[in-house]
Design a protein around this nucleic acid. Structure first.
Length: 119
DNA sequence: CAAGTGACTAGTG
DNA sequence: CCACTAGCCACTT
C-alpha cells in the first residue's frame, strides 16, 4: 500500500512556517516564492491544511494569511480561534478578518538567511 | 482518465 | 474599485 507520498514542497513549506517569529505574519505567496515554486501559493494553503489535520503539527499556521492580511484559513481553526491566537501575539487588525499585514509582515526571502552552497 | 475544487496571486480592462 | 482570467498542482469525484 502506498505510504504518504508527500512532495518535498510540503516539507519545505513546513520548515518555513515553523520559523515565522512570534507576533509576525506572512503570506501564502511569500512562502511559495521562498520555497522556489513561485506561483503555487495555493499549494501552500493545501500543505497547511494537511498539517493541521495531524493535530500535533505544532506549526504556527495561524500566522499565515493571504497577501491582503485576510484570515482566509480561519474556518479550519474553529470559531474565532485564529483571531484569538493572533491577538494573543499583539497583532493588530485593520478589519474584522484582516490583520495589519504592513505592520507585521515577515518575508522569508528577506528575513531568512539564503541557503548558499558555500555556506 | 477527465473534470472539478481550493487556506492564492498577478494581470487586464 | 470590481469582475474576470490564467497559472498553479494535489487531491477528489
Amino acid at each position: 500500500m502506498p505510504e504518504e507520498t508527500k512532495p518535498d514542497f510540503f516539507e519545505r513549506v513546513y520548515e518555513v512556517v515553523a520559523k515565522i517569529p512570534y507576533g509576525r505574519v506572512t503570506s501564502y505567496g511569500a512562502i511559495a516564492r521562498y520555497t522556489g515554486t513561485g506561483k503555487s501559493a495555493r499549494m501552500v494553503g493545501y500543505a497547511l491544511n494537511q498539517s493541521i489535520k495531524s493535530s500535533d503539527s505544532e506549526l504556527p499556521c495561524h500566522r499565515v494569511v493571504n497577501r491582503l492580511g485576510q484570515l482566509t484559513g480561519k474556518a479550519y481553526f474553529g470559531e474565532g480561534v485564529m483571531e484569538s491566537m493572533l491577538r494573543q501575539e499583539n497583532i493588530s487588525f485593520t478589519d474584522i478578518d484582516t490583520v495589519d499585514i504592513r505592520k507585521h509582515f515577515w518575508d522569508p526571502m528577506i528575513e531568512l538567511p539564503v541557503r548558499s552552497k558555500n555556506h
